[in-house]
């Protein structure tokens, strides 16, 4: 990091240094936390109280307000993690590796939530808790990739080597994400197609869509707050002798 710093005239990579990043993250976390709480409460209000009944699935469809945002972030956070892994390998930037490592638990959590809530949705609507169709199977593989990622991180003692090895796993595993997303198009699956896509009008009533998007935004701010807090822990663990933490202790 210091090499980059001394070489660049204007210090625009300043925020890539853990020393600068640590207090900045500390200042940002409360804002993201409050934003997440407000949006999630508003999303719950829209989803549970305001949104109308669905013409096919009755009240059972309300699971969509947690299931879909969780599923989106299970995939999006994986791509973000892989992105930071690439950055970490290419720039040899410690902070990028720390970001990647800090994203994994939240991504895994959302994957698990997507799988379990999907199960609670599938049972009454499809008639089965679980089926081995391409969508469900590839999402399960995503969970295994996350678990594999942090098993590898903790299995290797040397931090640098652990970062590099797990970064490679994260990058290779990223092929699974488009497979999950397009599985419902590429193969016959029990899981239905996407209601929301960039290429066509949403197949969803506006108020339902609004509730779902608000909830997703809430999950996004939650993820940012949690990940930043985790990066701070990571910085403290890796660089405990740095004096900058003393003020917090």
């Amino acid at each position: 990091m210091d090499i980059v710093k001394s070489k660049s005239g204007i210090n625009w990579l300043k925020y890539a240094s853990p020393k600068t990043f640590y207090p900045l993250a500390g200042q940002l976390i409360p804002w993201f936390s409050v934003g997440a709480a407000v949006l999630i409460v508003y999303g719950l209000y829209l989803g549970l109280l305001v949104a109308p009944t669905d013409f096919q699935q009755g009240e059972g469809y309300r699971i969509i307000f947690v299931h879909v945002p969780a599923a989106w972030f299970s995939m999006f956070l994986y791509l973000l993690m892989a992105g930071y892994a690439i950055l970490g390998l290419v720039l040899n930037a410690k902070l990028s590796h720390m970001m990647a490592k800090s994203i994994a638990p939240t991504g895994a959590m959302f994957t698990l939530v997507a799988l379990v809530t999907g199960s609670f949705w599938g049972k009454p609507m499809w008639g089965a808790w679980w089926v081995w169709d391409a969508r469900l199977t590839s999402e399960l593989i995503l969970l295994f990739l996350y678990i594999g990622y942090f098993s590898l991180q903790s299995a290797i003692d040397d931090t640098n080597r652990a970062d590099k090895a797990s970064a490679i796993l994260a990058i290779v595993g990223a092929v699974n994400v488009p497979i999950i997303y397009f599985s419902v198009k590429w193969w016959n699956t029990l899981h239905q197609g996407a209601s929301i896509s960039l290429t066509k009008a949403p197949a969803m009533a506006a108020i339902m869509l609004k509730g779902m998007l608000i909830m997703a935004l809430g999950f996004w701010l939650y993820s940012i707050a949690v990940i930043l807090a985790r990066v701070r822990c990571e910085i403290m663990e890796r660089d405990s002798k740095a004096a900058l933490f003393r003020q917090d202790i």
Partner: peptide, 8 residues
């Protein structure tokens, strides 16, 4: 099913 999902 709905409350289990939100709860989890």
């Amino acid at each position: 099913y709905v409350w289990s999902s939100f709860g989890i």
